[in-house]
Every structure is written in structure tokens, then in C-alpha cells.
Simulated assay, not measured.
Amino acid sequence: MKKIITLLMGLVLLAGCSSPAEKNEDTFEALMEKGEIVVGLDDTFVPMGFRNQQGELVGFDVDLAKEIFDRIGITPKFQPIDWSLKESELNSGNIDLIFNGYTITDARKEKVNFSDPYMDNTQIIITMASSDIMSKEDLTGKVVSVQKESSAYDAVSGEEGVVENLKNGELITFDSNLDLFMDLEAGRSDAIVLDEVFARYVLLSKNIEEYRILEDNFGQEEYGIGFRKSDTTLLEKVNETLEEIRSDGTFDEIKKVYIND
């Protein structure tokens, strides 16, 4: 009987220690009391969130998150994550937000709530300049690579008649967009599909004449911030603050540091 009572007390204590995220509750008050919010990001995704030469996390989304949460009154803690597990990390409570060039899609809306869109993007196709690929049609029989679990993967996979006509009828996937460039340059990939925001920033540090950006693309999209379905108060506060930052010009000031339109 004592063992049973001890076991039951332990279960009660465990239930009492579970986080608001685990209990599918609105976590805003708990986060404010804690004074910290965990922001999940891919720390190789230039210019949105990446490490500078000193190893510090910088980028447009990093600075924007700092400004948003400074105004709300809570400190952001940036947590690099495996991008392919981003929604699982969020809904398990390991992070409180997905904030790093996170494309709004219908499939993702089933797993998370999104903030208002804050930036436009395009899924572009890049080859080496010496390639004979000039259009989407020329991808037939070619090796095409994308980032794993990315909106590029969704965009290419969602277009009828594309993937089945690639070499071996499949897309090649990598953990990061930087890996795509390395594979393209090594001649293993014939073409890569990725975010224009990322690609154009990377190409600034390369000889752009060695590459070709096709006129064809895999669609326009918008970036948003991802929230747990239960975090409606946090979503509302972030949207209100994001609108303030846009209205007073701070958004454009942050953007000028990292992105040249």
C-alpha cells in the first residue's frame, strides 16, 4: 500500500511539473513570468539567422526578434534546431517560436499558427553558368537538390510532372542550403532550388558570373513566425508589435543592414 501511495504521489508531482506547452495551454503569462522565450532557428540561413566570424548569432530575423521582444518585455533566447524537426521541436515545448525565414504554407498551417506575413520570397532555380539547363523543362533527367523539409521541397514536389521526370525520379535533399551550393559546385547536382533571399546573399561572396539564376521559378511565398496552436495571446502580442515596428520605420532600418532589394 505504501508503494502504491508513493507511486501515485510521484505521478501527481510529475503532472504538476509539466510545462504549459505540454498541457496545450496559452503560455504567454508563464513566459512573461519566466522572462525568457526560446526562439528556434536554422543558424546557417543567411541573411535571416547565421553566425558571424566571431561565432555570434546575427541576421535580419535575429535583430527583428530582439526588437519585438524588447518591446513586449521578454528576453529572446536563440536555439539552433534541426530544421527538418522544427514543428516537432515547437509542439514538444523545446522551443517557443519558429522564427527564421519560415515560409507560410497550407501544410504547415495544420501544425502551427502563423503571424502576419512580414517578407516576400521566391523559390528560385540555380545552375552553374556552363549548364545547358535554361528552363524548368530542361530539368528532365537531371539531379536537382533542395533542403530537407523545406518550402523548396514542398514547392518542387507539389508541381505536377517535375519530380517523376528528374534523374531516378527523386529530389536529392541536404540538411542546409549551404550544402546545396557545395554540391552544385562539385558537379554532383545539376540544379538547386532554394529561397531567393538566402541565395542572393550567398552569391554576394561568390563570382556570380559562374552561376545562372533561371527566369523560371517554383513560386512566390511569404515568411511568417510559427506559434503553437494554443499560444493565441503570444501570437496577438507579436502581431501588434510587428505592426508597430513596421509603422515607425524600425523594420526598414533592420532590413537595410542585411537585405538589398
Rank of each mutant, 00 (worst) to 15 (best):
N121E: 13
K136R: 13
S189P: 05
A186V: 02
I172V: 11
T105V: 11
L139W: 02
K148N: 14
V112S: 06
Y102N: 11
N94S: 12
A152M: 07
T127D: 07
S131G: 05
I125L: 07
F174N: 09
R188P: 00
M134H: 13
A107P: 00
G187Y: 03
N121G: 05
K142N: 08
N168F: 13
D132E: 15
E110K: 15
I95Q: 13
L166H: 08
D154V: 14
T122Y: 02
T122V: 14
I104T: 08
T173S: 15
V143Y: 10
F99M: 11
Y153Q: 15
T173D: 09
N100H: 10
K148E: 11
S157H: 03
L180V: 03
S130G: 08
E137T: 13
K148A: 08
D138G: 10
F99E: 04
S189K: 03
E170Q: 12
E137N: 14
V112Y: 07
S131E: 05
N168K: 14
Y153E: 15
P117C: 01
G158C: 01
K142G: 04
E160D: 12
M128P: 00
G169S: 02
V144S: 05
P117G: 03
A107G: 08
I133G: 09
F181L: 11
L139M: 12
E137W: 06
G101W: 01
S150M: 11
R188M: 04
K142T: 11
G161N: 07
D106F: 01
G169P: 09
V143E: 08
S131T: 09
V144E: 01
S176N: 10
S176C: 05
S145D: 10
L97I: 07
D106Y: 09
L180N: 04
I124L: 05
P117A: 07
M134F: 13
N94Y: 12
E137V: 10
V163H: 11
L184E: 00
R108V: 02
G141M: 02
L178W: 01
A155G: 08
